[in-house]
Design a protein around this nucleic acid. Sequence first.
RNA 1: GGAGAGGUGUCGGAGUGGUCUAACGUGCAGUCCUGGAAAGACUGUCUGCGCCAAAAGCGCAGCGAGGGUUCGAAUCCCUCCCUCUCCGCCA
Length: 450
Amino acid sequence: MRLHCLVIPSYSRDYLYVIGLRKVQSMLDIKLIREKTELVEKSLARRNGGFSVKPLLICDEEFRQVQIEWEELNRRTNEISEHFKKGKLEPSEAEALKEETKKLKVRRQEIESLRQDLEKKLFELQLGLPNLPDQAVPDGADEKANKEIKRWGNLPKLQNPMHHYEIGSQLKIFDFERGVKISESRFTVLLDKGAKIERALMNFMLDFHSKRGYLEVFPPILVNRDCMVGTGQLPKFEGDFYKCADDALYLIPTAEVPVTNLYREEVLAEEQLPILHCAYTPCFRREAGSAGKDTRGYIRQHQFNKVELVRFTTPEKAAAEHEQLTLDAEGILEALELPYRRILLCSGDLGFAAQKCYDLEVWFPAQNQYREISSCSVFGDFQARRANLKYKPADGGKARYMITMNGSALAIGRTMAAILENYQQADGSVLIPKALQPYLNGMTALKPEL
RNA sequence: GGAGAGGUGUCGGAGUGGUCUAACGUGCAGUCCUGGAAAGACUGUCUGCGCCAAAAGCGCAGCGAGGGUUCGAAUCCCUCCCUCUCCGCCA
């Protein structure tokens, strides 16, 4: 990887689409925006983010005007070249045509830079628009308007429950201080049984999903910029991710990024769908804007482990598959017998790329509240447009965009924290959930050293 | 990191300045042939965008990417990326 990759930011393929006159990927369908402007505006307004397609439409109009002239210049140039092809022109005629082409070329160069600027701007405006919320998503400005869908499990009856980090420190399975020493804040060292539980959870979750038909993948953890744009992290949230200084690569914030991009720029057959993947990866997030939040403990780390579910499907099946994917994530919580609830996010709390999203929240006794442990989102064709994920319909029609969806199942660090809190005993020990015991050589409890 | 060879449509693979969206083969779809199938024959078969209410139609762009030479570039020149082989280095 050469340094110039970084020096020229426009080197990325996303911008080459513009500069190289290759197809421009629409994030929201540009035709939909033109034809159903009011509808799109209304839908975007539900997000309460101040989004509007107006600047995009103005730019689109300008761009098309320029594009029309540009195409006409090319057409005439091609026409002149036809005359030469057919051969034997009078010298004076040939000269005149050469002159004309030179003039056309000058004009084209003028218009070319304008065209490129407009196309790039158009592209950026498109990339900056979030997905449209699904009909089923309730209106609301923030998390207060989220809707609880269901609750599962009985809350443990505990007197003065300890926080997971207190329990973990006491059991000597977390070493927060040394994590900070060898890295910085929000990095933690797991010791002994802590490391083993983390590993057991990964294996348990992957086995669980594999049995349900998810094909396991273990992808690269460093990905190129195209992937980050493809799933919607970039260009809008540049500051949220770790980027390599000497290579144009990013540390993934979630397995969603490499796994969703597995089929980027491909056209699959409808018979191959749905595709179900599960993947364990470490995840890296800068947590910019989270200063002061969850500073203690193991639930908000710059590096954490997660098992992710990803599905690729058709528009017809998407809604049902999203429900199933959410049930699959819940299956882990139920197998581990952790009390949780399912929340339907309101329009204002919805992630940038999401069309509809369920959050799963697990009970934390010491905090006396439910906390997010999974997010199960369906993206419609939003990611598919960005990443160019298509399938050929079985009836032989034109290639269509796939529907993508994904969900954590689950965030492993938070699962460990939830186990510590929910399974804590009065004597300071922690019971191991039955489902996990086979993954820990039959260990049934963590006991404090005497 | 060094040397060499490459990058063309579903795939294989031609093409070294115009007749090239691109031979030929293959795959796929349809029609014919057949009792049915195979073989064979014929036809069709890329994507994105624009003009258009839409269809049809027309146009523009695309041979790894960007730039250059030229009236005209898959083809010539420059830069970069990627793949393969050998060497070096390394888990």
